[in-house]
């Protein structure tokens, strides 16, 4: 069920996110004794996102690119309401589901089917509704008999496939995906791309973080390029991806293009 509103699906206004992190200084026996064995610590603040403003409309696909540590995952977590903004605001209109880098695995000792059930319940579905979707999700993930095996026996690709299958079947208005597709094989990537196109047709808003520039260029309707938390570019994909490629001087490197 889509959220009926004139509001953008996602509105980000002057968003900044700062982390407080504790670094361990070089330990000495004397300082360890003085501090009752605790390591000497130094507090550092890291500005993961700096003054970002953007909107994502229903039916829009925003691709987020940038090097490691650019703030892409932090942006998704802040939009999902997982991390608090340090300044600015985020407004969400609709039901959000997330597939972030850690996947859906609630407990790797449990089977894929158990984790589907937990994922469904976490998304507010009833046991009956999940039972109706369970076989469809299992079939989409193409895990075969592995769906009844503990998730600790899964490969990274199998993890990704199950995670993607679960979140895309949770009827989201806004879907946030972080690199989750990069581990799947080629045929599953095509299937996932088709699923995303179907969702866009149904006016779902999608934000995908990826290093796969080719897929971002082909699928996303708008692109955001982040660098050290700063917005370097935001607009049509061919323009932004081109500028990013020039910036990192990789051109159309097949390694990056084929990551997704």
């Amino acid at each position: 069920m889509q959220y009926e509103s004139d509001l953008p699906a996602v509105t980000v206004e002057n968003l900044s996110v700062k982390y407080r992190t504790v670094l361990e200084s070089r330990p000495t026996m004397k300082s360890a004794l003085m501090r009752l064995g605790r390591p000497q610590q130094e507090v550092k603040y890291i500005e993961a996102l700096k003054d970002l403003t953007l909107t994502v409309q229903p039916g829009e696909f925003l691709g987020v690119i940038g090097h490691n540590g650019a703030g892409k995952s932090t942006l998704l977590r802040t939009i999902a309401g997982i991390l608090p903004p340090s300044s600015g605001r985020v407004q969400i209109a609709g039901h959000v589901t997330t597939l972030l880098s850690v996947g859906i695995g609630f407990n790797s000792e449990l089977t894929g089917r158990d984790n589907i059930r937990l994922g469904g319940l976490a998304n507010g579905f009833s046991i009956k509704e999940i039972a109706e979707k369970e076989d469809e999700i299992a079939a989409f993930s193409e895990l075969g008999e592995f769906i009844d095996y503990p998730m600790k026996t899964y490969s990274t690709g199998m993890y990704s496939r199950l995670g993607f299958s679960v979140v895309t079947h949770m009827d989201p208005d806004i879907l946030l995906i972080d690199e989750a597709l990069s581990a799947g094989d080629a045929s599953f990537r095509d299937k996932a791309a088709k699923k995303i196109e179907d969702m866009m047709e149904k006016a779902r808003a999608i934000i995908l973080v990826s290093h796969g520039l080719q897929t971002i260029n082909e699928m996303a309707s708008k692109c955001l390029w982040l660098d050290h938390g700063k917005m370097m570019g935001y607009g049509p994909c061919d323009e932004i991806v081109g500028a990013y490629e020039d910036f990192v001087a990789v051109g159309s490197s097949s390694i990056i293009s084929e990551e997704i």
Binding site: L7, T78, G81, P84, S86, R89, V90, Q91, I92
Partner: peptide
């Protein structure tokens, strides 16, 4: 059914 706002 809700619009959510996350701020500082």
């Amino acid at each position: 059914t809700k619009v959510r706002v996350y701020d500082a």
